[in-house]
Write a protein that binds this DNA or RNA. Structure first.
Lengths: 183, 183
DNA sequence: ATAGATATACTCACTCAGTGAGTATATCTA
DNA sequence: TAGATATACTCACTGAGTGAGTATATCTAT
């Protein structure tokens, strides 16, 4: 019954929350706010989704939350990262993103955000690794495109668009490098 | 309790199935096969997801299925489009896609597939409308980018990538037009 | 002065996307 | 003749994402 892919997918803000907690423990509302200020163009996460993920992360034993009474406002839960969660985050931080537009735009940028905060050299390294990964992906897509017969119009159009997008991601990655160097 | 957005989202293969049924009624297995031959680079839909959607579509009164006994193989359900479903499909067919990479790559290509099958002029018209829509989206993104302060590095990087992708989509749309004209 | 908006802080119940395993039979292939 | 592959579908699950609801405090404009 247990799913073969507990791989909860790096395309949910899960790792972003883990990362924010690795910088500073906090309660849900604050985490959500940090997410929507620093990465609002990257993730579109509602408050309730934030809490959903936080609860799951706690169930799985990656973070731990304790209730804090407050004088006037309602009690809140203060979360902090525990070793398994830190380990999970570190591993994610060093794994390149898949070669899809969404993975780059959402997951890779998030990774870069945390990498730069901990060490700008790491950020530059991640960019270089991602360039290699993406170039390889682009070649695979070009080969795939060549193998699709011209009558197969819509499959060709789909792959052709992906080829163009990979190419534009490569250009963006180089712009990204320059931006990180200057920042 | 009822969701405010019954907007089941055009990013599920729902409309593709409606469209396939508008061309020819069929049973689930066959619909799945048509999907993975003609649009395999566009949708990645498993057989069980196909049945899920077909069941939902029937519950909602867009399609209707009747059991057919077979001599040797197990009975199968033959689906056909009913008027509300046809109407829903027609409306979708004439609504431009949102300006996101995924909407274009998945939904727009699907729309084009059905448009060309019914009339190549319609396909060309849809492309032209989409160009207008996408150009407007690109301008909005550029304005947004200008409004993000340069210290806000990662939000800028996110929007910058989207700008590049919109630009590459516009080029692709023009390639698309040429392809449809020649096909 | 006070009414209404906004901020803090969280819970709950829901729909939809997507997967994997399971059931059953027929036919093709080495 | 055994195993892979094709036909045809069901079921139960996890995870993404939303909207409404609860409750209190503070700020703001009339």
């Amino acid at each position: 019954m247990a799913s073969k892919t507990p791989h909860i997918g790096p395309l949910s803000p899960e790792f972003a929350l883990l990362g924010l907690l690795s910088q500073k423990s906090a309660h849900g509302y604050e985490l959500h706010q940090r997410l929507v200020t620093d990465l609002r163009q990257v993730w579109h996460v509602s408050l309730s989704q934030t809490y959903n993920i936080l609860n799951r992360l706690e169930e799985r034993g990656y973070i731990s939350g304790t209730f804090q009474e407050q004088e006037k406002l309602p009690a809140r839960r203060h979360f902090h990262l525990i070793p398994t969660g830190q380990q999970r985050f570190n591993q994610w931080l060093h794994t390149p993103s898949r070669c899809t537009v969404r993975a780059i735009r959402v997951e890779f940028i998030t990774r870069l955000y945390f990498a730069r905060a901990s060490s700008p050299e790491l950020a530059l390294h991640l960019i270089d690794v991602q360039v290699v990964e993406t170039s390889a992906g682009l070649e695979r897509l070009k080969t795939l495109l060549d193998e699709i017969p011209s009558e197969d119009t819509f499959n060709r159009l789909g792959v052709d668009l992906r080829v163009r997008q990979m190419a534009s991601i490569l250009e963006w990655l180089s712009y990204c490098r320059a931006t990180i160097l200057l920042s």
